[in-house]
């Protein structure tokens, strides 16, 4: 489909016996910010590398910006940008020199490069630091410079591998504003992140776990799947209360946020329906519970739920095997 900037079918990648990505079927719409989530080792980076033509898939097929990821890697490289997880510009070269080098590599030089530099450096607000060595820039500025370099050839799609890792909140905000601007102009963005509050900013998110895409959708729609399954409990002895509540059969997990406990129920329910059971369990452990109330599920809750269910299935599989 012409509207899909990325489209894969049963994409797999093995490294020896390790199956880093299994049967990945994924579509990303043009003009979207797609958030690619998952714990470390879930296969996110391997997927990105396959999509931007750095490594070949072991199995399956796919297209990126309309080009085949197996046979048209050069075309993909020309039409996409990539911003690596770690700062990957030359620290001993100035911001200017870094930019001009990458411009040159994409065939942009002379007047055109000057113009592009002015345009992008002003956009990412780094013009005043252009003569400084890249290694001496602050974390946020480094990221913005890297973004400018990734945009030099006006790519249709930009891959950003954890673009805000180690950047302070104000700088993160600034970077996200830039990303929305880009998106507004029609550039598609494929972003991996660990920060789940950041994932909320994406139009669509996909969860990777153990090399598989386990869920995909708009953040609010995904969160709704947990509606009713999470009950908030306020207790000033939250640690003891957590231990007590975990013993209940209908509770699958409890996480602590200060004095608030987020209780994950096995079945969707309401605070009124479960309050009695929760209070009884607390009393048994002689802990005081102040309030039981409804809470809005977050992506973080979702993330925890996914990990928990995957751990449970692998435990079951092991039990069956033995």
């Amino acid at each position: 489909m012409a509207d899909d900037v990325i489209s894969t079918e049963a994409l797999s990648r093995r490294f020896g016996t390790l199956e880093a990505v299994k049967n990945l079927t994924l579509t990303v719409k043009r003009g979207e910010i797609f958030g690619f989530l998952g714990p470390n080792g879930a296969g996110k980076t391997t997927t990105i590398k396959m999509l931007c033509g750095l490594i070949a898939p072991s199995d399956g097929k796919g297209t990126v910006v309309g080009y085949d990821i197996r046979t048209q890697r050069d075309e993909i490289k020309r039409a996409t940008g990539y911003m690596a997880q770690h700062f990957s510009l030359y620290p001993d070269l100035t911001a200017d020199e870094n930019f001009r080098f990458f411009a040159g590599v994409y065939g942009i030089f002379g007047k055109e490069a000057d113009q592009r530099l002015k345009e992008l450096f002003e956009r990412v607000d780094i013009m005043h630091k252009r003569k400084e060595q890249a290694g001496r820039l602050s974390g946020g500025l480094k990221q913005r410079l890297a973004l400018a370099c990734a945009l030099v050839h006006k790519p249709q799609l930009v891959f950003l591998d954890e673009p805000t890792a180690g950047v302070d909140p104000a700088q993160r905000q600034k970077l996200w504003d830039l990303l929305y601007d880009l998106c507004q102009e029609g550039t598609s963005l494929f972003v991996t992140t660990h920060y789940l509050d950041e994932a909320e900013r994406c139009h669509t998110v996909g969860f990777m776990l153990g090399g598989e895409l386990i869920d995909k959708g708009a953040p609010h729609a995904l969160r709704q799947t947990l509606r009713g399954k999470i009950i908030g409990v306020y207790s000033e002895q939250s640690v003891v209360a957590m231990r007590a509540l975990k013993t209940l059969p209908q509770v699958s997990d409890v996480t602590i946020y200060g004095y608030e406990l987020r209780v994950f129920m096995r079945e969707a329910s309401t605070p009124q329906a479960v309050e009695g059971a929760l209070r009884r369990a607390a009393e048994k452990a002689s802990v005081k519970i102040d309030r039981v109330y409804a809470v809005e599920p977050t992506l973080e809750d979702l993330f925890m739920a996914y990990e928990r269910s995957s751990a449970a299935t692998s435990a079951e599989a092991q039990a069956e095997a033995s």
Binding site: C52, G53, L54, D74, K77, R78, T80, G81, Y82, A84, H86, F87, S88, L89, Y90, P91, F102, V105, Y106, C149
Partner: peptide, 13 residues
């Protein structure tokens, strides 16, 4: 070592 090779690799070089 610096990770810049990855950046080079995604260019058409």
């Amino acid at each position: 070592e610096r990770g810049t090779f990855e950046q080079l690799s995604v260019t058409p070089l």
